[in-house]
Design a protein around this nucleic acid. Structure first.
Lengths: 237, 237
DNA sequence: AAAGATTTTTAACAGCGGTTTAAATTCAGT
DNA sequence: ACTGAATTTAAACCGCTGTTAAAAATCTTT
């Protein structure tokens, strides 16, 4: 019964029991198992809804006792936080790829949004986005919000670039960004892996729609962009 | 101390204490107070986040004890359900207005989305949308989902009409509908009444963006709409 | 002022779910 | 096989929060 986690962890990597690292490092054995647990949370998240995400559920999914989870994580909040970060990292990778040189704003934005959506659909951490950050510890919230802002700023930057380049209509960058990212964040609410729409279809169709709304209309009036008045931030959580 | 609710209820309507109806009707005294309570939930929802929406909070907001709430509602679930319905009714009113005769699809859709967003921003029940329907009683869920589907079908219908009329691009109606409504449902996550954006601005900017993404591009290829293959429903909650 | 219904409070209950602790088990290395 | 470290379990704890029941207070009517 004590092999469950180990089994899960080494399921893919043959049966080689050779483990030379034993300490508590990021990539140590304990660290690996932490990842297994987090992936398991993602699984639970896929099926049941967030409101019923209980420590017990996660333990059941793994076939271990809930007490054991506290050997790997400080508390539930910590687990949730880690999930948030995993999810965010995937999206930030997409941002990185998107901001590579030599792309038009449309191309960049398409890559970013595609990667962002795929991350939500594929890795299963999407559902975590519904959680609010209220019971994060200050440092956790700070770290997470920083990265989230990075993502949002990235998306907004591309929209701005597109407007400046005359490729996009002069929309309100911030609100349009909220609209796009909000629509994406909402996906886990209706998406079901067994449903009618494949991730490919969803990505294709949604990203197309998002971009079409930005594309400059030939007959549109050219409003002068950027009055440069830094509007106060409106974004609590 | 027993006047709190009454005070709140009659705050606006002068100090006339005449109450001829006493029974438990929809519009009876008890019914009126129920509305006051629900509005109070909306207030709590505006400030704190949903995860911390506790019966105690609601009672505090009203200046009464939590036990008293059970004189007006069966249980917490019931309260939440009522909030859902209030919120939905507002949106359905917008749908009704939007589907009046003699409007183009764009016009209809604009009215619907405007009313829907305004409802979320103004009445304060928007935050309730984050809740999942898991712990609804079957009948509650059925009733609510029926109305929600009505709203979604309404929106989709307008998109379809627009495509048929050559006014909109031939998008995937369902997914585009998810995108639009999802973006709207997400609004309570970032909107703050004291923030930089007024409801007017938000409505204006978002609805414009949503419609621009639908508008037929002059050079776009005309895909034949409606293969009529009823795709399986993908929408659990 | 009294009676009866309505409304509110008080206080206690109950269960769920996160957390802790110590004991038991497993594992790696000798 | 033995030892100590790493891992897991079992069981209990505990606080929070929804809920209930009965008593107290208030209001309405006569």
């Amino acid at each position: 019964m004590a092999r469950n986690l180990a089994n899960a962890a080494t399921k893919r990597g043959a049966s080689a029991p050779k483990r030379n690292i034993r300490w508590n490092g990021v990539s140590g054995l304990k660290g690996q198992r932490r990842e297994v647990i987090l992936r398991s949370v993602a699984n639970v998240l896929r099926n049941s809804r967030l409101s019923s995400l209980t420590i017990q559920d996660v333990a059941d999914e793994l076939g271990m006792t809930k007490g054991n989870l506290y050997y790997y994580f400080k508390d539930k909040q910590d687990i949730l936080y880690q999930c948030h970060m995993r999810s965010m990292e995937i999206s930030l990778r997409a941002l990185e790829e998107a901001t590579a040189k030599g792309r038009t704003p449309s191309e960049s934005l398409r890559i970013l949004l595609t990667g962002h959506i795929r991350g939500i659909l594929d890795d299963g951490f999407g559902g975590i986005l519904q959680t609010d950050l209220d019971n994060f510890r200050p440092d956790q919230r700070k770290t997470y919000v920083k990265k989230r802002d990075e993502l949002e700023r990235g998306a907004r930057g591309m929209i701005e670039d597109g407007i400046r380049a005359g490729e996009f209509d002069p929309v309100n960058v911030k609100l349009t960004g909220f609209a796009i990212l909000g629509a994406i964040n909402w996906i886990p609410k209706w998406y079901r892996p067994t449903g009618a729409f494949s991730p490919d279809t969803i990505v294709e169709e949604m990203v197309n729609y998002f971009l079409r709304g930005l594309q400059r209309q030939p007959g549109a009036s050219q409003k002068p962009l950027s009055k440069k008045k830094r509007q106060r931030e409106q974004h609590e959580q």
